[in-house]
Design a protein around this nucleic acid. Sequence first.
DNA 1: CTTGACATGTTGTCATGACAATACGACCGA
DNA 2: TCGGTCGTATTGTCATGACAACATGTCAAG
Lengths: 252, 252
Amino acid sequence: MSSYAIEASWDRLDRNSGVPLHVQLRNALQQQITEGSYRPGEAFLTEREIAARYHVSRTTIREALVDLANGGYLVRQQGKGTFVARTRDAFDATRLSSFSEDMWRRGLRSSSRLLQVTDGPPAEDVAAHFGSDVRLVRRIDRLRFAGDEPISLQQSHLPLPRLAVSAEDLGDDSLYRLLEARFGVFVTTAEEVISAEVASTVDANLLGIAEGAPLLCVRRFAFSQTGEPIESACIRYRADKYKFYVQQTRGV
Amino acid sequence: MSSYAIEASWDRLDRNSGVPLHVQLRNALQQQITEGSYRPGEAFLTEREIAARYHVSRTTIREALVDLANGGYLVRQQGKGTFVARTRDAFDATRLSSFSEDMWRRGLRSSSRLLQVTDGPPAEDVAAHFGSDVRLVRRIDRLRFAGDEPISLQQSHLPLPRLAVSAEDLGDDSLYRLLEARFGVFVTTAEEVISAEVASTVDANLLGIAEGAPLLCVRRFAFSQTGEPIESACIRYRADKYKFYVQQTRGV
DNA sequence: CTTGACATGTTGTCATGACAATACGACCGA
DNA sequence: TCGGTCGTATTGTCATGACAACATGTCAAG
């Protein structure tokens, strides 16, 4: 019984299961890849080998292999063969990095100054992110520096009974680090909307630029690992000191 | 000559161009979609109709249609047909797309007006992209519209002996599509730097906004499938009409 | 030793054909 | 009117076959 199961998982596809053969094949191959049966960059089974092992046509094989290649598990090279992908990073990691990350990599220190912490009812877009249950949010205003120069103004909104961070807790530390340590909440995904504005008088004074100077404005809606909405933020960067870098690839 | 060109763009695929038929077909169908020839949710051409029109096998047709479905342009339903996608949730900034594709995903009709084409030595950042071999570039200025409203100003720079596109060739058509058809060059990756500026007098007049209004400024450096630098562009969007959307996921 | 021709193995492209699964309207009988 | 049957149109699945494009090693000629 168990020997049959083992054999089935290795080279038998069920033609009467109702599940398409190319799906069964794709799953079987994907399992072998994610199991670690192959080292990254190693040559994978050729179409001919798969045909011999699973007794399916090349049509079916190619359907499975192309799907896995599109999913970033395999890399196919005409004339050479099929190889297990070295990294799948390009498929789930962000391809957008900020100037501050660049600065951090180059060893430039970033710091921030807490401006004020206030509680109040959420504005419209903030309320839309947290849902109607949240009737009170804590707004945290910070001025952020790269080196000695002010770079950005950040307004963060947190849902209130849930994530009541205090000004003392926060200090000049990272908000996300505090959320992890204090509440066990990890921000894993975020949706960002990037826009442009001109500096108001108060923004200009804080950032040390002229009124009417261009600002890069980011609205961020952050979620935890469980999908819970965590933070709604509005960050205004000095456009002369901060730029976004995006790596684009062609999907279809 | 022109009648041939028109016919070619509609129902003729070039079997001797070296470009696979399913790629040509996919591009042709995608153009029809992003041009706005079909309303969202409307029934698209059936496989049979495509076969009759383009004289290719179902294998080729399915390859193109499945690609477009995976790309979020079409929805296929067994037994019913193929439909133009109704939801355009996939307009992520990390996806390389043409202006018309981008506008279509935002639910807008796109058009553009050619302003001028001039040749000259490259500016510093443009030269850095193309390398020191390129001593002359062609600059193409275009005004882009979303619906009836001007939305962006685009300056494209192309390396000159290599990619000499003419104003007549270009017309109001897609630059990338022209590069594919005319030179066999496919833009597959790009690096973008997103910044903010304020509108100059001339920009403001063209875009129909006030001088000093905020602009979202994008510098794009585009590469072909072989890694060859293809285009260096500067695009300035009206910040009140255009924003970037980014889905961030955290590594670790 | 170098170079080119050739064989071999790989993935890519395309056509043809058959049948299955699904959706839906037309028709017919109760 | 209701409900079931049937035909038709659609996309989904799978097989087979042929050739093209590309990579690589072998081997003989120079």
